[in-house]
Design a protein around this nucleic acid. Structure first.
Lengths: 147, 147
DNA sequence: GCTTTACCTCAAGTTAAGATGAGGTTTTAT
DNA sequence: ATAAAACCTCATCTTAACTTGAGGTAAAGC
């Protein structure tokens, strides 16, 4: 169990993910490994952190794809350090801020909106929180006129 | 276009969902229709509201299955009225409150957590917001000791 | 009356994020 | 030296929420 020479089983145990998940992440380019003489995967120790961050991000509702994107902005050869991770954290914090904001607006308008009788796809804040406006042609019509 | 006699195409246009989605929702028990002489679907006007509510709930991250559950608590034969929908709204508002809370805690701990060097699967708030504690055997090990 | 548009059913495809299993090799432990 | 545990690859399966397509009927417009 050398410092920079972790087996897949060990990594799995330490991070709580299955071996198959590690294979999967590798295939998706989220983590890396090299092979030993017998073709078995070996990992550097920082893979542990990486996986933890993946799991953390997923809890925030971030997709693997988008996590992958974010990782692309990280040092490629150098092992990422505190500062690198902290930067990630900031980015995700902002994303979270926006999510919270959206949800809060949504919550505050939900009652009036479902209750009022309109639920217009054009004006209802449930459909159209400003961060998710999809403008596409004539679009759907207002449902009722009570509003 | 009688008041309580909407065709699937009309409903699709009005709500902005595809015809195939309406078929799908019906199959899942989320909406209902009857058939005309030529075996084509006809809907009551309240299907519009129902679909809108489905879409709204989805935006809150609620699954179709759980929406279906919620709908089961609604009047079956009577067309649901304002009060019925408002009740739904309240339930979902509470759910949203919880989500917002979780995310807020998450955001507030994210920086310290990714930054600090621990990311412990046992003590890290990113892994273990109190609403998602999974206790299962020995579990994964702490990643680093810096914390 | 004929053509186009709208519908119908049923089967199969799609994406995300893995899980599962078969069949075979490497390591590790005794 | 041998058996058990850990790995390997590749293929197939899972769930959610739809979408697409094929092959055929009904309704609407001129």
């Amino acid at each position: 169990m050398e410092d920079a020479n972790l087996s897949v089983g060990y990594v799995a145990k330490r991070t709580g993910v299955k071996v198959s998940t590690l294979h999967f992440y590798e295939q998706k380019g989220l983590i890396r490994s090299w092979r030993n003489q017998g073709n078995q995967r070996r990992y550097k120790r920082d893979v542990l952190r990486r996986i933890s961050v993946i799991k953390a991000a997923q809890r925030l509702g971030i997709s693997l794809q988008s996590i992958h994107q974010t990782f692309l902005g990280m040092p490629n050869e150098r092992t990422p350090d505190k500062k690198d991770w902290a930067q990630l954290s900031q980015r995700w914090q902002q994303q979270l801020d926006q999510q919270i904001n959206s949800l809060t607006k949504l919550r505050d308008s939900l009652d009036g909106c479902i209750g009022c009788g309109c639920l217009s796809m054009q004006s209802c804040p449930i459909y159209n929180p400003e961060d998710a406006l999809e403008i596409e042609g004539p679009g759907p019509v207002i449902l009722d006129r009570k509003c």
